[in-house]
C-alpha cells in the first residue's frame, strides 16, 4: 500500500545532491574516538596532561577538520 515514489528525472538529480564519496570520511571521527586502546594511557604526557586527556581533546580537532572538509567538498557550487 506504500505510495508510489515519483520517478521524475528532477528527483533523480536532486537525490544525487547528498551523495558523495567524501561522506565516507565522516566515519573516521565517529570510530576513532571510540577506541579506548588509543587513549587509555598516561604516557606520553603533554603539558602535564596524561595522554587520556590531551588525545581525547585533540580528537575535537579531528572531528572539526573532517566535517569542515566534507562540507567544503560537497557544498553546492553556484547554481549547479
Amino acid at each position: 500500500m506504500a505510495a508510489p515514489e515519483p520517478e521524475a528525472p528532477t528527483t533523480a538529480r536532486s537525490r544525487a545532491k547528498d551523495h558523495s564519496p567524501w561522506n565516507w570520511l565522516l566515519f573516521i571521527p565517529i570510530l576513532v574516538p571510540l577506541i579506548p586502546a588509543f587513549f587509555n594511557d598516561d604516557s606520553p604526557a603533554l603539558l602535564g596532561f596524561p595522554r587520556f586527556y590531551w588525545l581525547q581533546l585533540a580528537y575535537i580537532l579531528l572531528g572539526v577538520a573532517t566535517t569542515t572538509l566534507v562540507y567544503q567538498m560537497t557544498k553546492k557550487r553556484g547554481d549547479r
Binding site: 565522516l26 574516538p33 581525547q56
Partner: peptide, 19 residues
C-alpha cells in the same frame, strides 16, 4: 576518567548527525 565520556560523546555526535 569515567566522567570524561562527555568529550568523546560530544565529538562523535556531529559527524554522526551531519547528514
Amino acid at each position: 576518567a569515567a566522567g570524561f565520556f562527555a568529550v568523546p560523546y560530544t565529538i562523535v555526535i556531529y559527524p554522526l548527525v551531519f547528514l
